[in-house]
Amino acid sequence: MLKHILAGVGLLACTATADARPVSYEGGWTAIGETDRASSALWVHYTPHYEWSLGGRVEWMRDRDLVFTGAQATHLVHRRFRPDSQGNLYAFAGAGVAEGIDGNPRDAEAAGFVGVMADWETRRWFVSWEARLADFGEGGEAMQAARVGWAPYEGDFGDLHTWFMLEVDQRPQRDEPVTVTPLVRFFKGPVLLELGYTPADDEPFASFIYRF
């Protein structure tokens, strides 16, 4: 059913896992690097207003030797506060060019993507969902990913926080359309690091976020 829904939207290409905290505090910068079973990306963004971030993104679709370079804007559509929890809904879009590298002779072409992301977390539990549609000039693809996480202890500000997470992602165009990635998240001060592994594709997973 989900596959049909995604296909019906007209899906385009995409990568990316759930990017934690895509909008920062006003005046804050964030550097994000991530590599998953499909792509590797670097993204740096600035938050001029607490509901917006703007930045540059480079993303390498490894299986196609295709690199996207462009700008990304993210909007915090809604943030729901409770004393012990926080929920967020984001919308994002990016535009730039995609071109072949290494053995791919493709010239640069206009490319872009749109997506939504939602998350909810307490100091013990985390759930998120993200979907993205993109066109990198090679027809349409899409992805979506959902994640659940649990922290075995509650650290205070400045402590090392540890999370155990499980991510399920769907990329209908790939040989393995649905995979599961267990990962561990370490979080301390301005740095977040995630390490995991996707057995179905035999690919490691890693991401880091540095806020400054």
Partner: peptide, 25 residues
């Protein structure tokens, strides 16, 4: 390549360790 990036992430975290100790504001 992905393994290199994973290692780079770990190295990045390591290089930030002094900042981690101090950066609360």
């Amino acid at each position: 390549m992905t393994r290199i990036l994973a290692a780079a992430s770990a190295a990045f975290l390591f290089t930030l360790s002094p900042a981690l100790a101090d950066d609360h504001g």
